[in-house]
Amino acid sequence: MSVTIVIPARYASTRYPGKPLVELRGASGAAFSLIQRSWMAAKAVSGVDRVLVATDDERIADHATGFGAEVAMTSTACRNGTERCAEVLGQLAPEPEIVVNLQGDAPLTPAWFVEDLIAGLRNAPQAGVATPVLRCSGRMRADLIADRMAGRVGGTTAVFGHDRQALYFSKEVIPFAAGEFGDDDPSPVFHHVGVYAYRPAALRAYSGWDEGQLEKLEGLEQLRFLERGQRVLCVEVQARGRQFWELNNPEDVPRLERMMADMGID
């Protein structure tokens, strides 16, 4: 089953303009841009046939070509990464059986997150889209709550049913859970990892739907599937001792750099 990873990247981010070109320093002090680190993470995933950076911005395209990435140019009309992946799908020949959207702000995504996601979609032939979720430790849950209390939009959380089908995604910390959790204790909160695997039919359907009300309110593209009554499979992944965070705000740069230093990632 052929797999293509698409890394959507846009320059005109509302919260963080130019984010894909921001440099992150690793444990040794080596600096690579956010988009290059995301591309490096994608290239580390096994069983993938092709990796592309998808953008509508020449600055990002030139930079990505410079470090060796294949680039697909898309229109400025794309409102989110899923729409950009859908547009790229029309440029791919032969058409892959699975398209993975590895968003360009998650350079710490371990390869096994994506490998487990692909396996999860392959093992659920009825599913058109799947996404990974990671159980939060008490420390990660506390970090998410601290971001919200400070008025920052941090990570996204997910709730799902016994069949692993998503019930909702939110930038609020859900579900509510009374009490405290130790730093290393598991909590009932699941961090939504910003990666998606789609079958081509699901991507084509998505691009034909208007934005949903909840999608607009939360700023979460995956809610369009739920608002249209489409199932989203949540695939639980394991941290295996790795720290994970996404770059959403300028304040996240030192946080990610500390994590890379702690984990010895160059």
Rank of each mutant, 00 (worst) to 15 (best):
M140I: 09
V6Q: 01
R164S: 08
D184Y: 15
V114I: 14
D105P: 05
A72W: 03
W39S: 12
L247T: 12
R59Q: 10
G154T: 06
H162A: 14
A150I: 05
S13K: 03
E95K: 02
P107G: 14
G47D: 06
T4S: 04
K43F: 03
N123D: 12
R152E: 06
V48L: 12
K19I: 09
I35G: 08
I5K: 03
S2T: 14
C234Y: 01
L214F: 12
E180T: 12
A142S: 11
L102T: 01
T157K: 01
P110G: 10
G161F: 06
I118R: 10
R255P: 03
L34W: 03
R141I: 01
Q103M: 15
E172T: 13
A31N: 05
A239S: 07
D252I: 09
V114W: 01
V53D: 03
D185A: 15
R37Y: 02
A9H: 10
T14V: 13
G26V: 04
Q165S: 11
R59K: 11
D266F: 13
G90Y: 00
S137A: 08
L134F: 05
S137T: 14
G208K: 15
R240N: 08
P20F: 14
P110F: 02
A41E: 08
G212E: 00
G151E: 05
S2W: 03
E227Q: 08
G182M: 11
Q243V: 06
F169T: 00
R242I: 08
T76P: 15
T131N: 01
V237H: 01
I118Y: 04
H191R: 14
G26A: 07
E251A: 15
G29Q: 08
E70M: 11
A127G: 14
V22P: 02
